[in-house]
């Protein structure tokens, strides 16, 4: 018989961890409100937040910084949840929205839209960026992402939906869509390419309340849908045969989780572009922080998604001064070492 040391560990209280995650998120947002390229006195900012303050400060805080921060928080939450869901159901720790072709589909959608919309609106003109209907980009990006996700789902569904099938179909279709988009850009580029490149890098530049309002309904719906899905998500991490014999309707819940992940990822990609690494790294960070308490991974990931995007955007804003660095570049540069460090910890 094994002589194990009997360790009756007391149930650890989940409240301190969740509260500190929440406080960190609030702290990150406040930091992002108070710091910026245009230096505004903290007293002035407090005045603006309480409904007073000068016109210029009000316009910088309320019309530029806050909507940008809120959009970033929402997008961060979307990427984090989408990454967590995809990693769970594909049972692949390297999954992120690009695995389901969502990023690539959105890229192709936005590329096509930018190329053709010019001719639709104003035939015969030389495309000027100002003439581009930029307000449609989020919806178009989201549609492209969803179509790619749906196509991959159908491909995998026809051959017995499963973690490996979905991943392989996703990678294959994703690379084709990506190649098509790059080909179009290379062969057809013009002034539009600036808009496209900025969007491709993943950027929160000039995001307004309209963008935040576009995302908010999806965020609320996604968070509400997570509650009934939480136990199914635990089971989806098992082998399909095991999950089914535990009593899970595997196909149904796999499909629901996939739909939720694609919806969240596609809406966020549409608004801020494919911010690299957030969907991949935040779930790993959340697992590291919660260590062995799987029930807390989801709330931790939500908070960390908001924190990571807010701070990364702040770094991009401050580091570049007038020419700010797109957040996608910041997350890629900072994310890679973090990922390698996290993977080293896993035995």
């Amino acid at each position: 018989m094994s002589t194990a040391v009997v360790e009756t560990r007391p149930r650890r209280n989940p409240v301190p961890l969740l509260v500190s995650c929440g406080l960190l998120a609030v702290g990150a947002v406040l930091l992002a409100v108070f710091l910026g390229v245009v230096a505004i006195a903290p007293a002035e900012i407090v005045a603006v937040l309480t409904g007073k303050g000068s016109g210029e400060a009000r316009s910088i805080i309320l019309d530029i910084r806050l909507p940008r921060i809120v959009t970033g928080v929402l997008a961060g939450i979307h990427f984090a949840i989408a990454g967590l869901l995809l990693q769970a159901i594909t049972r692949n720790p390297l999954a992120d929205p690009s695995v389901m072709g969502v990023s690539q589909g959105a890229t192709l959608g936005v590329t096509l839209f930018l190329l053709f919309s010019v001719y639709l609106n104003d035939p015969g003109s030389t495309a000027r960026v100002t003439a581009l209907p930029l307000e449609w980009l989020p919806a178009v990006g989201m549609l492209g992402g969803l179509l790619a996700g749906a196509f991959i789902y159908l491909l995998a569904f026809r051959r017995d939906l499963g973690p490996l099938r979905v991943t392989l179909c996703g990678v294959a279709v994703g690379s084709i869509l990506h190649a098509l988009a790059i080909g179009l850009i290379a062969g057809w580029g013009s002034a539009r390419i600036d808009v496209l490149l900025e969007w491709l890098a993943g950027s929160l530049y000039a995001r307004s309340w309209d963008h935040a309002l576009f995302l908010a309904p999806f965020t609320v719906a996604g968070l509400l849908a997570l509650y009934p899905l939480r136990r199914a998500l635990d089971l989806l991490q098992f082998d399909p045969a095991v999950a089914r014999s535990f009593g899970l309707s595997y196909r149904l819940h796999f499909s629901l989780a996939l739909l939720l992940a694609c919806g969240l990822a596609a809406s966020a990609v549409g608004v801020v572009g494919p911010i690299v690494f957030v969907g991949l790294i935040v779930p790993h960070l959340a697992r590291t922080v919660t260590r062995g308490r799987p029930a807390l991974v989801l709330p931790a990931a939500i908070a960390l998604g908001a924190i990571v995007v807010t701070l990364a955007d702040l770094v991009g804003r401050l580091a570049g001064r007038a020419d700010e660095i797109p957040i996608g570049v910041v997350t890629a540069i900072c994310g890679a070492p973090v990922l390698i460090a996290l993977l080293r910890r896993v035995p």
């Binding site: 720790p93 045969a241 095991v242 896993v346």
Partner: peptide
């Protein structure tokens, strides 16, 4: 039902 050599999620 318990299959042969089932695998559990990490951690």
């Amino acid at each position: 039902y318990l299959p042969q050599q089932p695998a559990a999620p990490d951690g």
